[in-house]
């Protein structure tokens, strides 16, 4: 309250309009440069798009992989691959993904999930460009 009183005493209406407009401009600028997280999971089979699932709606879908059915689950803005009964379970171990650009795959099934949408202005923190293994 004191700050507001001080502001009212020390500024003219024109000052206050200028400050309000500038504040709005700053917020707008921040929103436009920071972007938002991914909105959809695109399911590929053999590198061809099979279906797209929005991440704002919890759901489970079954898709046909090379070795049988593969379940894809969406929950709380995230998506994951619930692999078919593969002993390696590499895709399942990847767990939930939600940031644009993140990938989960079951290689033997030929199924790949990518989170797609507006590219984040704040790139996810990645320790390495790649890992040799």
């Amino acid at each position: 309250m004191r700050l507001l009183t001080l502001l009212a005493r020390t500024t003219t209406p024109g000052d206050r309009v200028t400050m309000a407009l500038s504040g709005m401009a700053i917020v707008g600028l921040m929103l436009s440069t920071r972007g938002d997280p991914g909105q959809r999971g695109v399911i590929y089979r053999d590198n061809r798009p099979l279906m797209t699932l929005t991440l704002n709606q919890d759901q489970k879908k079954e898709v046909s992989g090379k070795l049988g059915a593969v379940t894809i689950q969406v929950e709380q803005g995230r998506i994951r691959l619930v692999e078919y009964n593969s002993p390696r379970l590499i895709g399942t171990r990847t767990g939930w993904i939600q940031e644009v650009g993140q990938i989960s795959a079951c290689v033997p099934c030929g199924i790949l999930i990518k989170v797609e949408g507006a590219r984040p202005k704040q790139p996810p923190t990645v320790e390495f460009d790649a890992v040799s293994q």
């Binding site: 440069t33 920071r34 590929y44 053999d46 590198n47 650009g101 990938i103 795959a105 290689v107 030929g110 790949l112 990518k114 590219r119 984040p120 202005k121 704040q122 790139p123």
Partner: peptide, 15 residues
């Protein structure tokens, strides 16, 4: 803002 670097690095993955 990391925008410049983000725009510069592009990646695509396939099976």
């Amino acid at each position: 803002s990391p925008r410049q670097e983000q725009e510069a690095t592009l990646s695509e993955t396939r099976l």
